[in-house]
Amino acid sequence: MAKTPERAQRGGHSGVSIEDVAAAAGVSTATVSRAVRGLPRVSPSTRAKILEIADSLGYVASSSASGLATGRTRTIGVLAPFVSRWFFSKAIEGADRELHARQYNLSLFNLGGHGSHRERLFSKTMVYKQIDALLVLCMALSHEEIEHLQKLDIPLVVVGGHVEECAYIGIDDYAAASTAVRHLIGLGHKDIALLHGDDETDLNFDVPRVRIQAFQEVMAEAGLTVRPEWDEWGDFTVHSGQEAFSRLWDQPGPKPTAIFCASDEMAMGVVFEANRRGVRIPDDLSVIGIDDHDFSGPMGLTTVSQRPDEQAETATKMLLDELDGHLGAVRSVVAPHQLIVRRTTAPPRPGEEPAR
């Protein structure tokens, strides 16, 4: 029989840790956490063994006695590399919408970009006692972080990017990028530049690489030249789009008539900087992005749309269904994308050199 909160508290003065219980039971600490909290994915025999050992050692199973009363914290963790950027804020909004409807709480873990501070969030506190499941937002992960996630014995879904051996929800990035490039080619553009995302080569993140691959292969299929001098990079922000356009346009020689940007925010930066420098959009340069950012409509930006809020809402529903005992609820899903043609793309002007 599982321990009551009061019984667990009486044993709390022995200083026994979750590692002690795990070592005695010959299982992972995550499995101990799941067993004492009544979460799924622990066999009855293993759960009984762990509870018996925990009881004999006097282990305090959770810092929250109320969590033990129900076997759940009723809290889902959301792990994000940034909280201020559009994709992540929209995804958090979608996750929170579903959690609120099901009377769960959201615990946000912000990795704060790239760097050493990321390590503190992969601590015992995050996964052992605070959350029942984890939603990981589109991000680059180190090899160590991926290994850690794969060892977690809690339901887990990644939104917006592929992570090995984890269920994930997101658009087909290859197909979305191909749709954007084919739109430009279909308008008659042959001189097309690429503004891709920085892939952070020390980390694992498929999205930038896949969108670059799609651009290169669709161009090759159409018999068009990919000019290395027209290959620019950014970090998915408006500012990086502005800087990339300046680097591209300051080069000597011919200019592209169109540019495929791997995100709307970078595409917006291109449009802003082009306008500042007197380059007419779309007369001199067609611009297309991916996302359908909230500002893309008012700006008239042609884009390939996705809905990160709906992706995260679907992922959150899967996690909660899994916690409710619907085994197999967590699975990989391809989200829809759609070409939305607005004012920033048009056929190249025949017989005219683009603005220098």
Rank of each mutant, 00 (worst) to 15 (best):
A222W: 02
P44G: 05
V159N: 09
S62C: 08
A61G: 15
Q150M: 08
A101I: 05
R307L: 06
R7S: 05
R120W: 04
S332A: 11
K49R: 15
P254D: 00
T345F: 01
I146G: 08
V32P: 15
L141G: 04
E19G: 11
L339S: 10
E221W: 01
H189E: 02
D231W: 07
R227E: 00
A329G: 09
S123V: 07
C138L: 05
G297T: 03
L319E: 10
A22C: 06
K151D: 11
E164C: 10
M266D: 04
Q306M: 11
V157M: 14
L339E: 06
R10Q: 06
Y168H: 12
F122D: 01
Y168T: 09
F215K: 11
E352W: 03
S107V: 13
A101N: 00
G170R: 12
L57R: 00
I50R: 11
S63D: 04
L323N: 08
I212L: 15
S33R: 13
W249V: 03
P81V: 01
R97N: 04
G289A: 07
D199H: 13
L195H: 08
H143R: 14
I192P: 05
G161F: 00
G241M: 06
G160H: 06
P228R: 08
R227M: 00
V181S: 10
Q242C: 13
S56A: 09
R97C: 02
E19N: 13
G160T: 02
A244F: 02
T125F: 03
S28M: 08
L327E: 12
T73M: 05
L134T: 06
S14D: 01
N110D: 15
P350M: 04
M1T: 07
Y128Q: 14
A329N: 12
P40V: 03
R41D: 12
A133K: 13
I185H: 06
D292K: 08
G38W: 02
V271G: 15
E164I: 08
T73A: 09
P155Q: 07
T302C: 09
T29V: 14
R356F: 00
G223V: 06
I185A: 03
